[in-house]
């Protein structure tokens, strides 16, 4: 298994605030890797730095053999990096179809097969393709955000809190889809506050506390670890 992403001793600052303090981790091709931790631990900051919206003050981000620490976000999409940001951030005033087309911005044209693939994965979106995205429910918006990211044929799909704000039944549905994508060979880096759900599907996971990684292991190992159970799984 070859490594697709490796983060080496990464430090990120917001002005004077030291948000990520020397984090190192890697993601192998075909894996689901989860970053879990409390609110404010630095999980989203890590994803934003990998995708190029932020840049590290020191340390390296190596993606697919290239050092991308200081490459801007819009260039990385072409290299095969897709990031579904926290809060979905779909284009609320555009139609579902236009959102998907924006997802394929780096492709030569919007291929029919890609659209069909998304509509098979998320049948709800097909019914609503002409609808303005702002009128979708939270779950549908999450599905749109994920399919929009998949339109760029990513080598690595990064998901930031895909279950946030969703009803339990929808959370299950979203995690089923993540599992399905994984089974189809997609490499996924998952950030979640819902630790128990994340650990169930993750091959490996890292626990983040105030900007540093405190624990790592396979999903199954961490799910039974005392520290994780106490802090994140409610005893």
């Amino acid at each position: 298994m070859s490594t697709i992403l490796s983060v080496e001793d990464m430090h990120v600052y917001y002005g004077a605030i030291h948000a990520v303090k020397g984090v190192s981790f890697d993601v192998g091709e075909g894996e689901i890797v989860a970053l879990i931790g409390a609110n404010g631990a630095g999980k989203s900051t890590i994803l934003k730095t990998v995708s190029g919206l932020l840049h590290p003050r020191s340390g390296n981000v190596i993606f697919d053999g290239k050092n991308i620490s200081h490459t801007d976000a819009h260039k990385l999409v072409r290299h095969g990096l897709a990031h579904v940001p926290e809060g979905r951030r779909i284009f609320l005033q555009m139609t579902v179809q236009d959102n998907l087309e924006m997802g394929a911005f780096t492709q030569k044209d919007v291929s029919k097969e890609d659209l069909e693939r998304m509509f098979t994965l998320f049948p709800r979106l097909k019914e609503r393709r002409k609808q303005i995205a702002g009128t979708l429910s939270g779950g549908e918006q999450q599905m749109l955000a994920m399919s929009r990211a998949l339109m760029s044929h990513p080598k690595l799909l990064m998901l930031d809190e895909p279950s946030m704000g969703l009803a339990p039944i929808l959370v299950d549905q979203i995690f089923d889809i993540i599992q399905e994508l994984h089974d189809a060979g997609t490499t996924i880096l998952l950030v979640e506050q819902n630790a128990s759900k994340a650990l169930q599907i993750a091959d490996r996971a890292y626990v983040l506390e105030t900007g540093s990684i405190t624990l790592s292991g396979t999903g199954a190992e961490l799910a039974v670890s005392d520290e994780v159970r106490k802090a994140y799984l409610g005893g």
């Binding site: 190029g52 976000a73 990031h83």
Partner: peptide, 14 residues
């Protein structure tokens, strides 16, 4: 329109 609505999300589209 995408940039006007959400600059960061637009960058994530490439």
């Amino acid at each position: 329109r995408a940039v006007s609505e959400d600059r960061d999300a637009a960058q994530l589209m490439g």
